[in-house]
Amino acid sequence: MIVASNLTKRYPGGFEALRDVSFRIAAGEMVLITGHSGAGKTTLVKLIASIERPTSGSLVVNGQNLSALRRGAIPYVRRHFGLIFQDQKLLFDRNALDNVMLPLQIAGFSQRDAVRRAQAALDKVGLLAREKAMPIALSGGEQQRLAIARAIVNRPTVLLADEPTANLDKDSAADIRYLFSDFHRVGVTVVVATHDQNWIETCHGNALRLGHGRVV
């Protein structure tokens, strides 16, 4: 469960990306964070993923208050999230399998287990046949699916994505939406920042709309 209370994020220089944002996302729920560019969607995703710290307010994920986390605990909290970025942040000097294995290596899995689980994740997103391919050799949609495989390989409790369908063609974007729905169906909490109108229209009201850093 994710509970935000009066969450505010002010950057150095005074720009306020989020102001007094409060919401509650139940475990296993799928929520889209929507809004215009600069509304604070990416900031909110970064706050939930502990990539940034709130200026004030509290943010509790799975019973843990992220606002009060000490620095050393942050990496361990991040391991509970599956993170997907708009620009994928893939490692272009590693093949697909090695990219997916990275979170498992960080968590200390043995090489054999890491390979097995990474292959299962690649299979889930339909990329097992391309496990040896370098990211540069993959299409935009495949790269995004590879990023999703890396995000789910650790079996996270929360899947967080920032504009995962941006820059993708219509069919690839639809594939990605289906994948997220699949994870939601098996009980994963899915939070997606997006301005993909097709997705917003089919989300059955589970959307958190932001405007100028506030919930609207």
Binding site: P75, V77, R78, L83, L90, L102, P103, I106
Partner: peptide, 8 residues
């Protein structure tokens, strides 16, 4: 990337 996905 490693830091974002939980590397200490």
């Amino acid at each position: 990337v490693a830091r974002m996905i939980g590397a200490t």
